[in-house]
């Protein structure tokens, strides 16, 4: 439980950090996943660059009708942000499902996104929010959709030398209802399945529905078949159930000690309906 020797730099600026990372150093944010892997010697980076202390990555601000969140913002900062609670409550709510207080004080949004753990909570939420992920390197910046960013288990579109710098989420009009519902893996607290739902109603029908899924398979995704089944429809219990049953269609569900593929698929169905109902209750 002792890491191999490594160098550690706490850079003064983002530029300095990006230069070091461009030269092969590994970015460290909250360390909630990387440090345990290093202690078990499953990861042995030679040089860590600590992004967690950079003010340049630590902000939540409203800009051009969107919310911009710096990658080093912690879960605690997300759950307690009045700006987010008012204008994008789903992102604040998701944090309350993560770990314990200690983890929420240390873990960061950017770290979670970059790590792309298949059972992490935020990928589902960002999928439902149609968030944009801003990547930066010493040579430039680019912005990706969640679909283009989350590729596979622990695999993202990040190129060597790039970091997750910012997450952009929409400001929700007052009529949008959102919810994140999660079935915890009992030991770790990670999502056995986690479903984020985002809904707007108009004249008794669903004018917008977005469903983000985590935990069910190797990577987070948007359940577009569930969305298509409900968009423009009345949110009756029957419709919700029928649509929710589609959530795992064609998905290669994960199986482990804690849940078989069948059980995970079943939970995804139940929790999709649960998330939709909760989001509905919050949308005017």
């Amino acid at each position: 439980m002792i890491a191999n020797a490594f160098d550690y730099t706490a850079p003064q600026s983002l530029d300095e950090a990006l230069t070091l990372i461009g030269n092969g150093a590994k970015p460290l944010s909250g360390g909630m996943s990387l440090i345990p892997m290093m202690k078990l010697r499953l990861a042995s980076p030679e040089h860590l660059v600590d992004l967690g202390r950079l003010k340049e990555l630590s902000y939540i601000r409203e800009q051009d009708g969107e919310l911009h969140i710096g990658a080093a913002i912690t879960y605690y900062e997300l759950e307690s942000s009045t700006l987010l609670l008012g204008k994008c409550p789903l992102i604040a709510e998701t944090a309350t499902h993560i770990g314990d207080i200690q983890v929420r004080n240390m873990g960061t949004l950017g770290g979670s996104v970059a790590h792309a753990d298949p059972a992490a909570d935020y990928p589902a939420t960002l999928q439902a929010l149609e968030a944009k992920i801003v990547l930066r390197s010493a040579t430039g910046a680019r912005t990706l959709s969640t679909k283009d960013f989350f590729l596979d288990t622990f695999t993202t579109a990040l190129e060597p030398g790039e970091i997750v710098a910012e997450i952009i989420v929409p400001i929700e009009p007052g009529l949008t209802g959102t919810s994140y519902q999660k079935f915890r893996q009992p030991a770790s607290g990670f999502a056995m399945v986690g479903i984020a739902a985002r809904i707007r109603q108009q004249a008794g029908t669903l004018s917008l529905i977005r469903i983000g899924v985590t935990g069910l398979s190797g990577s987070s995704y948007r359940a577009t078949n569930v969305e298509a089944a409900l968009e423009g429809k009345q949110p009756t219990e029957e419709n919700i159930r029928a649509a929710s049953a589609l959530v795992g269609d064609g998905v290669d569900a994960s199986a482990d000690l804690h849940a078989s593929a069948d059980y995970r698929q079943h939970l995804a169905t139940i929790y999709t309906a649960k998330a939709i109902r909760a989001a509905l209750s919050r949308s005017a």
Binding site: P186, A187, S188, F190, L257, H258
Partner: peptide, 23 residues
């Protein structure tokens, strides 16, 4: 309800950390 030390056939404890051993 929760706890179990589970070994695979090779003798590996697959609930060998708190991520998998539910306290």
């Amino acid at each position: 309800l929760w706890e179990q030390a589970v070994y695979d056939d090779n003798g590996q404890l697959i609930t060998g950390e708190f991520m998998d051993y539910c306290m």
